[in-house]
């Protein structure tokens, strides 16, 4: 007896996993473009996600989910770290531009 409901459920789960894979692989590539910290985490995320397509094709849902969850962790940590560092640098540049160091005069700045 073929359980069509079970088959449909599996198909649906695989399609949803495929969508998740699209999202996190794209996010990993975008993170990898955030040089230099994001690059490390983005490439790590891409490495971790390797084999997820094959796992989805084999309907090995547990393995694919595990890989994509780990990929998501890499992407989120890399993105948050890079954005944090960029904002920190931006505040340092802003402070350097708009508030010259104490004792600076026209002559020393020239």
């Amino acid at each position: 007896m073929i359980d069509y409901d079970q088959l449909a459920m599996e198909q649906r789960q695989c399609a949803a996993l495929d969508t998740r894979r699209d999202v996190w692989i794209t996010a990993a590539v975008m993170t990898a473009l955030l040089f230099p910290i994001g690059t490390l985490f983005g490439l790590g995320a891409l490495a971790v996600a390797r084999g997820s397509r094959a796992a989805i094709d084999r309907k090995d849902i547990a393995r694919a989910t595990g890989k994509l969850d780990l990929c998501r962790v890499f992407v989120l940590v890399g993105t948050i770290l890079t954005v944090g560092v960029l904002l920190w640098q931006a505040t340092a540049v802003y402070a350097a531009v708009f508030s010259p160091p104490d004792g600076a005069t026209e002559d020393t700045r020239r």
Partner: peptide, 17 residues
Amino acid sequence: TGSVRPRIASVVAVIWL
């Protein structure tokens, strides 16, 4: 299960995020 989208929609959405 999660949502199902066309691939191009997911890719473009993430790029613009």
